[in-house]
């Protein structure tokens, strides 16, 4: 009974935090320059790990996909699998996981450190709303940066898949491009970008929530950063599944 109640309490607190953030985000004043500063930092810090993590995925899909497609003599069709898998599923999900690992944990650690040192209370004393100045810019920055990074990872994923399919796997270049362009629709791209915006928002929200809830010392800060990564990954996989089912049901 007690763990159930605790879970419900956490969900309720998280939801009211979300409403708080939403309300603060749509009312002025907005700290746009602070948001842009965070965005620049996030892009700088995330671009290399995210690129390095997603690029091999296309290569692996080509490598294993070719083996299956060869059994049926369909290796010309490989790029239809590769394209949809990268654009719709693996590039958004993995890019978001890496953003959670890199950006989410650092945002949580930053807010947690401010909280532990009493800087959040100091802001409130100076009648600067910490929600408005610290949390919301982080959430909005995550929401905007993740789709941006996803554009890059889409290109990297397809490129590495091409390398393993065409020069190394012996698939015809023309057939690869033809099936790629025939199968990938703008809808695929938008689905991927929309997922990224959703996951990015989740990263920012969880980081903000756990960071603001930090109590204690350095260890609590580390725990907030670590929990942000774990919870976000769970949430990303769960939401990804729900979205996939919904899209399959809607036939998109």
């Amino acid at each position: 009974m007690r763990p159930m109640l605790q879970l419900l309490a956490t969900i309720g607190a998280g939801f009211s935090f979300f409403l708080d953030v939403l309300h603060t985000a749509v009312t002025s004043p907005r700290h746009i320059s602070e948001m842009l500063r965070i965005m620049a930092t996030l892009v700088k810090r995330c671009i290399i790990p995210v690129g390095l993590a997603v690029a091999p995925v296309g290569a692996v899909i080509s490598l294993q996909g070719l083996e299956i497609f060869r059994m049926f003599g369909l290796d010309r069709m490989l790029s239809s699998l590769l394209g949809t898998a990268i654009f719709r599923e693996y590039s958004p999900a993995l890019a978001s996981v890496m953003v959670a690992a890199q950006a989410g944990s650092s945002i949580a650690a930053r807010i947690g450190t401010m909280k532990v040192r009493g800087q959040i209370d100091a802001l409130a004393v100076m009648s600067v709303d910490p929600m408005r100045y610290v949390v919301v810019p982080g959430v909005v920055a995550c929401m905007l940066v993740t789709p941006l990074l996803n554009v890059l990872t889409n290109v990297l994923g397809v490129l590495s898949g091409w390398v393993f399919a065409v020069p190394l796997g012996g698939v015809n270049h023309g057939a690869f491009i033809e099936h790629l362009t025939a199968q990938i629709t703008p809808a695929d791209l938008w689905v991927g970008l929309g997922k990224c915006a959703l996951f990015g928002t989740a990263v920012g929200l969880i980081a903000g929530y756990l960071g603001m809830g930090t109590k204690g010392g350095a260890e609590a800060v580390g725990k907030a950063a670590n929990d942000t990564v774990v919870y976000t990954i769970v949430l990303i996989l769960l939401v990804d599944y729900v979205v996939s089912m919904a899209l399959l049901g809607a036939g998109i």
């Binding site: 239809s80 949809t84 898998a85 719709r88 599923e89 996989l237 599944y241 996939s244 899209l247 399959l248």
Partner: peptide
């Protein structure tokens, strides 16, 4: 997810 996504593809 792997099942659902691969099915859709």
């Amino acid at each position: 997810n792997l099942s659902v996504q691969s099915y859709a593809t």
